[in-house]
Computed example of a mutant assay.
Amino acid sequence: MTTIADKWNLHADHFWLRGRRPDRPVCFNTVTGMWNVYGYAEALRVIGEPRTFSSNTGRVIPERDEFSEGNLVQMDPPLHGKLRRLVSHAFTPKVVADLEPRIDAVARELLDAVGNQGRMELIGDLAYPLPVIVIAELLGVPADDRFMFKAWVDKLFSSSEQFSLTNRTEEQERRFEEITGEVRKLTAYLGEHAAERRRRPRADLLTRLVEAEVDGVRLTEAEVVNFANLLLIAGHITTTLLLGNTVLCLDAHPEQRARVRADRSLVPGAIEESLRMLSPFAVLARVNEEEVELGGARVPPEQLLMVWLSAANRDPAWFPDPDVFDPARDPNPHLAFGRGIHFCLGAPLARLEGRIALNILLDRYPGLRTDPGESPTFSPSPNMTGVTRLPLLLDD
């Protein structure tokens, strides 16, 4: 069976995308100095036990500690829970459901702009601008600045080099400096808007962060901008990759595409299955507080564990026929959005945006398919799985 990874030469070292299974669920990588966690049960344990497996990876990667203040992804309880509650109200089921008319209108407006040219580039025309407009409006920053956001964010994930704790190359050091510079541009931008909210509050998420207190103390400027930075980046990139990956999966499985087109109740399932098979954020990092036994391996304390969600999502012990794309798969307990206290805050919004956009695409373009003359482009980052450019033909 030719997989999507084989067809498009996607991440040569991600063997699980090609139907191969790891020899062990947990193993040490002597080249990177990190532990790889591939098994589903082991991944579930690591991301589900924050007291044992800390999200504060800055303790072993000090270069990344500069932007950890206020960054939910790198926080542990109890501060994590206190900060998460500050914005959780913006992602409740009711608030997200109430966004449906706006999401629908934006998606239709973007596709109207495509016109009748018979082709489109899915990411630039729809999958990127749709979620970034929505999250920018929620935060309260100009959606018209999205091209500036894209330039910054693209550079964050532009390297194909695997990070290593033991082999610190000049290229890796250069990349750290480059990434730090791009993040500083984004935090400086958000800092300007945060300062403006202190002078003139509005009814938006950025104002709520500026005015928020934790244990009676206002958030620092660094906490505000790093928190907002996470919301802006994670608030759009997941949907961008989710939508592109789902269209790619359906294109690779025309019989399932016809099935979903005929039965729209399968659209949510198609999205979930694409999240499982091509998980946008392929890996999470944790540091174990103490020596642990995990997947038959004894892991010393203070080790960096790379939890490969994309591999866990193909564990045959949990997913029968894991390399088969099945929009009706049930149950489908994939870990693409994480699990436990760090479960993706914006998952309901990403799912809604994906469902709306995919239904409109299927309604408008009965001949929707990849362009055989122009291959898709994938994110080079080994930590992500997804298309960054997807040319499509629209006519029958």
Rank of each mutant, 00 (worst) to 15 (best):
residue 126 L to G: 00
residue 197 R to A: 01
residue 137 E to I: 01
residue 248 L to W: 07
residue 58 G to T: 06
residue 126 L to V: 01
residue 135 I to Y: 06
residue 87 V to Q: 08
residue 365 Y to E: 05
residue 206 L to H: 09
residue 205 L to F: 05
residue 385 T to H: 13
residue 149 F to P: 06
residue 17 L to K: 01
residue 261 R to P: 00
residue 173 E to M: 14
residue 363 D to G: 05
residue 356 I to H: 00
residue 244 G to P: 04
residue 337 F to R: 02
residue 106 V to M: 04
residue 113 A to G: 08
residue 165 L to G: 08
residue 236 H to Q: 15
residue 72 L to D: 02
residue 144 D to T: 15
residue 274 S to G: 09
residue 64 R to S: 13
residue 197 R to C: 03
residue 322 P to F: 03
residue 206 L to Y: 04
residue 123 I to Y: 08
residue 312 A to D: 03
residue 113 A to Y: 05
residue 298 R to A: 07
residue 114 V to Y: 11
residue 255 E to L: 10
residue 113 A to C: 09
residue 237 I to Q: 14
residue 332 N to H: 00
residue 118 G to E: 13
residue 311 A to H: 13
residue 253 H to E: 11
residue 380 P to I: 04
residue 244 G to Q: 10
residue 147 F to I: 13
residue 127 A to H: 05
residue 263 D to G: 01
residue 161 E to A: 15
residue 28 F to G: 00
residue 55 S to C: 11
residue 109 E to M: 14
residue 360 I to S: 01
residue 94 K to Y: 11
residue 23 D to L: 12
residue 34 M to I: 09
residue 159 S to F: 10
residue 255 E to M: 06
residue 231 L to S: 04
residue 23 D to P: 00
residue 239 T to H: 02
residue 261 R to W: 07
residue 220 T to C: 09
residue 165 L to R: 12
residue 294 L to D: 08
residue 365 Y to Q: 06
residue 324 V to W: 06
residue 343 F to N: 06
residue 142 P to S: 07
residue 218 R to A: 14
residue 347 A to E: 06
residue 287 V to S: 02
residue 371 D to H: 05
residue 41 A to F: 03
residue 332 N to A: 02
residue 158 S to M: 11
residue 28 F to S: 02
residue 161 E to L: 15
residue 296 G to Y: 10
residue 178 E to L: 15
residue 270 A to S: 10
residue 379 S to F: 00
residue 210 V to Y: 03
residue 25 P to G: 02
residue 32 T to F: 05
residue 163 F to R: 11
residue 333 P to K: 05
residue 140 G to S: 06
residue 394 L to C: 07
residue 230 L to D: 06
residue 222 A to L: 11
residue 299 V to K: 05
residue 172 Q to W: 11
residue 102 R to G: 07
residue 278 L to M: 15
residue 51 R to N: 14
residue 100 E to Q: 13
residue 114 V to D: 04
residue 18 R to L: 00
residue 185 K to Q: 15
residue 372 P to H: 09
residue 288 N to A: 01
residue 234 A to G: 14
residue 172 Q to P: 05
residue 54 S to L: 07
residue 192 E to Y: 12
residue 237 I to A: 14
residue 50 P to A: 10
residue 136 A to N: 10
residue 51 R to H: 15
residue 9 N to W: 09
residue 143 A to S: 15
residue 147 F to P: 04
residue 391 P to I: 09
residue 383 N to T: 13
residue 311 A to G: 11
residue 10 L to G: 00
residue 174 R to N: 12
residue 14 H to T: 00
residue 71 N to V: 10
residue 244 G to L: 09
residue 281 F to Y: 11
residue 13 D to H: 12
residue 344 C to W: 01
residue 76 D to G: 06
residue 54 S to Q: 04
residue 119 R to K: 14
residue 179 I to R: 06
residue 22 P to D: 07
residue 334 H to L: 05
residue 290 E to L: 10
residue 283 V to F: 02
residue 196 E to W: 12
residue 286 R to P: 08
residue 245 N to T: 11
residue 178 E to G: 12
residue 67 F to S: 03
residue 287 V to F: 06
residue 357 A to T: 00
residue 391 P to R: 10
residue 61 I to V: 12
residue 202 R to V: 01
residue 19 G to K: 03
residue 96 V to Y: 09
residue 205 L to C: 02
residue 76 D to Y: 07
residue 244 G to T: 03
residue 1 M to K: 11
residue 71 N to W: 13
residue 69 E to C: 07
residue 333 P to Y: 01
residue 63 E to D: 14
